[in-house]
Structures are given as C-alpha cells and as structure tokens.
C-alpha cells in the first residue's frame, strides 16, 4: 500500500518573482516515469513540502494542456511559505497530489466565461484560463476581471499584458483606491464594484468563476446576482487550511463538507449550504 503522506520529490526548474512577496515555481518530478505520466485536471491542488518547515496547500497554477512542468504560486506569509521563498532553482521540494475536484470546463462549452479574481487568488484561475485559451474554439467570450491591493501586488504581470494584447480575451484590471501608480492604465476600485458598475456583464449564456478571500467571494456573488446572474452560473474555488488533502486531518471540514475532497471547486448553491463563515 502506498504511503499517502509521503511526498514525491520535485526540482525547482525556474523561479519567477511575481511581487516583492510572491513567487512562482516551475516544478519537475525527479522520478522520470512520474514526470512522464503525471496527470491532473484544472482546479486541482497539491500539498507542497519544504522539508524541515512542513507542508502547504496551493492550487496547481498551470494548465493541464501545458505539459513539461507544473507551476505553483505563493505569497510568503507563514512558516512554510517563508521557507519556500528562500529556495532557489535546482532545490528540491516535496509534492503530494493532485487532490480535489475540478472545474467543470466541459459544461461551459459554447458559453461566455468570466473569471473574477483578487490578489493572490489569480493562480487558481490562471490554470483554467490557459486551459480554456488552449481550447479557445469551444468557448464564446472569455473575460478576466482581476484586481489587487496595489499595482505592486498584481501577480502574473507579464501574462496580464499578454491577455490584454489578445483579441479573444477581454482583460479588466483594477487596483484598490490608493494602490494605483502614475502610469496605471487600469481601473481604480474594488473588484465587486468595478464588476457591477463598470464591466456590467450580461448574464445571458454566461458562467462566472470567482476566486478570492471569502469576503470578496460573498460581495462578488451578491453583485452578480444584482446583475441578474442565477446561482447555477456562479462558481468558486476555496482554499481552506489543510494538512493532508485527503479528508483525514479534519482541518478543512465545514458542516458535512471537506473542502479537500468535496471541493475545492464549488457552485454558489453549494456554498450557500455551508455555514456562513466558510
């Protein structure tokens, strides 16, 4: 029987400094056979080990359509992420996964898809954004509404520029009031506000995927419902605190739901069934 707690070793192939406190790692399995055969679907997450510091939970930020390596993106805030932040190209980390359910991208075929993210919540959306862009013909309009506290806190700046340059992506970017710079060419305002008052999406044949802190998810869903969206058009992905990713440690248990195995992807109607403070 495999040891469900033992990570697989991965080498950091590339480090990208996204913001002063956020990094992206490109990761490759050290076991060649695993590297060759590893599969995941968009929306799934992993448990990343910095040996000696512990394990942290992040989504897989790359798209399953892009083979060769997987990516994770994290902000240094706690013990493990601070330790991970110190690592360099060539270093070894541990990975367990993929865990959890996936974005139902086949259900979205033929529809408009809007991604709404805040701050460090763009990485979970990035996986599914690229997944859809790599299957571009299957979807109608694709829009990305992304905001952060300040210009410095925007992650994936290079990719935001790339999405802005594309004809087939509608890129809306914003920073919180006071977070703008002199040369900022996006909106200034909180994401739910910009979404409701400036972007104003049409609910017709559209799904919205929202990722952010719980308070942002709440306000964004409320704004979208005011615009006429129904609950079954709204999807989110949660990242509760986890230790195992397997429904065993109890950390992410809310009501009868385990975010790690029943999620992390939830429809708005499912979120409504959870106790208020998910």
């Amino acid at each position: 029987m495999p040891n469900i707690y033992q990570p697989n070793l991965m080498t950091i192939k590339k480090v990208i400094n996204e913001t002063p406190d956020t990094k992206t790692f490109h990761l490759v399995f050290q076991d060649e056979e695993l590297q060759e055969n590893f599969e995941f679907e968009t929306g799934q997450f992993g448990e990343y080990s910095c040996f000696g510091a512990g394990e942290s939970t992040f989504c897989i930020a790359s798209s399953p359509t892009r083979k060769g390596h997987i990516e994770c993106c994290f902000r240094k805030t706690g013990k493990v992420t601070n330790a991970l932040f110190e690592l360099s190209e060539g270093d070894t980390i541990g990975f367990r996964g993929p865990f959890g359910n996936t974005f139902p991208i086949e259900e979205w075929e033929g529809k408009n898809v809007i991604f709404v993210g805040g701050g460090i919540a763009l990485p979970p959306l990035r996986s599914v954004i690229w997944n859809l862009l790599d299957l571009r013909d299957k979807y109608k309009d694709i829009s990305i509404v992304y905001g952060a506290r300040s210009v410095a806190d925007l992650v994936y700046k290079q990719e935001i520029a790339e999405w802005e340059a594309r004809d087939d992506v509608n890129m809306v970017k914003t920073v919180d009031p006071g977070g703008e710079t002199d040369d900022w060419d996006g909106y200034v305002g909180f994401v739910p506000h910009i979404l409701e008052n400036d972007f104003k999406p049409d609910p017709e044949n559209t799904v919205v995927v929202v990722c952010g802190p719980p308070i942002m998810i709440k306000f964004t869903f409320e704004a979208l419902e005011r615009l006429g969206f129904k609950q079954d058009q709204l999807i989110t992905t949660l990242e509760n605190r986890m230790k195992c990713g397997l429904g065993k440690c109890g950390r992410c248990n809310i009501g009868s739901t385990y975010v790690c195995i029943d999620g992390p992807v939830f429809k708005a109607a499912e979120i409504d069934l959870l106790p208020p403070e998910y």
Binding site: E55, K243, G250
Partner: peptide
C-alpha cells in the same frame, strides 16, 4: 476523534 496535525 481523529483530527491530526503534521509538523517537521
């Protein structure tokens, strides 16, 4: 009861 934590 079976909740646990892990640490290095």
């Amino acid at each position: 009861c079976s909740c646990f934590t892990t640490f290095d």
